[in-house]
Design a binder for these strands. Structure first.
Lengths: 334, 334
DNA sequence: TATTTTTTTGAATACGTATTCAAAAAAATA
DNA sequence: TATTTTTTTGAATACGTATTCAAAAAAATA
């Protein structure tokens, strides 16, 4: 039943040539006469020969594999990220090893797996990378790029949105729309996204002498947004706008507000971050900040290819802009 | 910068033993004296030695890699599927090669990639598998399991919900709730899920002498549901309930209905299929059919392991039940 | 202690490919 | 046609590991 896998040796025998020549044909080497090439391809087809990628990678030292580590694949933002990364990298011949990290920080076991398989690069989204992990990858010549995150110490390259600037513009927008009383629902407090978004937001409020910002902790999920909004509203009756750490939080917030019986944006304005597809669904129509996802992925892929071909290049940070997408969840107040 | 990767040979030299013995330690072989084992582990740690998975797989003929092919990762149902499959398989030491098929049918190129990497198994969800592709996998001793799909010819194993029976129960429920005028929004018409759900639904209606079923084509996306509902309602004023091919369609349908200005369930009842997380969000509160996702994944993994260890086993079909989850999108009519 | 049995060890080899190097064949030039 | 240059080819080898087999060492038994 389980037929033997044919090898380049089998093809060579059937075609009456040496294994080297078969290998040359499949490695795309041009120095093979048309006559033999044809014979070899015929024989290969007859045997349904497939080169063995593992044997090949042993010699070439190219595995054409990239690891992608995610923590929150159920967040539609990251589903989209995964899809786009796959499409870009597959087009370049790379294969994706998908790792769903269950913990906030990428685990020893997961690192080991990626090292054993000699991935050429690792993309880490939505997860933290310890300094020691980062060094481990570096020492093994594996390129690491953080996506939508960065670390202070700059041990690996990173591609992300300028969250600080975006949050400033969001705050300015809310203030100019006439809001007086502000809340922020955060993600995990040790993520760069949360830190920068809060920083920019708070700075604008401080500049304008607004000191009543309420901060409610969340973890970038619908459920955490829902719960945070409930607490927030029952505790602080006068909140008139909520800046949500990301869109999926915002959806939970909006649902909670409505369950309580308040109206959006009449009673409370809500603003998100990411511009996931759902935010434009009429049930939500969420005003939010769009991250230029496709561009971010393109930059990440480009940077990764560059670093793979030149391992000695210094870690690099690419910061992108994005823009406000105005829908109907923020009200112009008098 | 790019330091050489150390090999078992390097470890052997540092520890003063042979390469064979180092290999034995890392292959988990017990026949190594404690003294040498310790020396080897020390040396390995000092060099940060990682066995090379590709070289290993060449000998053992086990790659510990599984391919997972998906078409619609943006559908939250499949994000969840991916997450659960990853968690189960990672716990067993398997690695996931993720492939996002852009076409309805899995492509030659994608098959080749999986063959080249000698994956031990392939899980195909939400995509079609041609007969020739199926044979190709079989001939190479690669186990294929269809998830949430099956093919008529039974060339590979399949795990799915009894869609026919579920649709019958859904139809019965709608009839008994007093509905008179029915619509079905389908997925692609060549998928087994669509075929069986429509068949079961129609059969019950036929049995009860109801012949006014309107069928609107969709493709298992929010957008297709939205559009289908718009057309349906403007064309057929009297529809009083819509059975949606899956939940994400149902969400689009609900939004479209509300945009038009009708109320759910007062004017139109909506029922879905899958029970994705969003269907319980208060904005939707969708009555739907729950697929026993965790159980389906568990069965798939179990079946896959069995077929990997016994390649000569016959293709097997596992059909699961699921159950109706009643929320508030279906009305009891008089 | 002498002998037998069991455990540990290393040399040799294989997995399936790409590449180097030298030889052979073909093509280009004189 | 004879010579030089270029192209094609195959033998040998390497990538990094696991495993077989026989020998050596250790443990158990007489």
């Amino acid at each position: 039943m389980n037929k033997k896998n044919y090898t380049s040796q089998d093809v060579a025998e059937l075609a009456g040539v040496s294994q080297s020549t078969v290998s040359r044909v499949f490695a795309g080497n041009t120095n093979v006469s048309e006559k033999k090439r044809k014979k070899i391809l015929d024989a290969a087809e007859k045997l349904e020969y497939q080169p063995n990628a593992h044997a090949r990678s042993l010699i070439t030292r190219k595995t054409m594999m990239i690891g992608i580590v995610m923590r929150n694949i159920r967040n539609p933002f990251y589903s989209a990220v995964l899809e786009i990364f796959h499409n870009r990298l597959a087009a370049l011949g790379y294969h994706l090893i998908f790792i769903n990290s269950e913990n906030e920080e990428i685990q020893e076991k997961e690192i080991t797996q990626l090292l054993e398989y000699n991935v050429e690069g690792v993309i880490i989204t939505d997860a933290l990378l310890s300094s020691s992990a980062s060094q481990k990858f570096n020492r093994n010549g594996i390129v690491v790029i953080l996506f939508n995150r960065y670390t202070e110490k700059l041990e690996s390259s990173a591609v992300f949105c300028d969250n600080y600037l975006a949050a400033k513009q969001i705050a300015t927008y809310l203030v100019e729309m006439g809001h007086k009383s502000f809340a922020f629902i955060s993600g995990p407090s040790d993520t760069s996204t949360t830190i920068d978004r809060l920083k920019g937001f708070k700075e604008v409020l401080d500049d304008r002498g607004i000191s009543n910002l309420v901060i409610e902790p969340g973890n970038y999920t619908y459920e955490s947004g829902f719960k945070a909004a409930q607490e927030l509203i029952t505790r602080n009756k006068n909140i008139d706008c909520i800046f949500c750490g990301n869109d999926i939080i915002a959806l939970g917030v909006m649902d909670a507000i409505r369950v309580i019986g308040l109206k959006i944006p009449d009673d409370i304005s809500v603003i998100g971050f990411d511009n996931i597809r759902m935010s434009e669904w009429p049930s939500y129509s969420l005003t939010t900040w769009e991250q230029p996802l496709e561009d971010m992925v393109d930059s990440t892929v480009e940077l990764m290819l560059k670093e793979i071909s030149d391992k000695s290049s210094e870690p690099q940070v690419i910061m992108m802009k994005g823009h406000l997408v105005v829908r109907t969840s923020v009200r112009q107040k008098k």
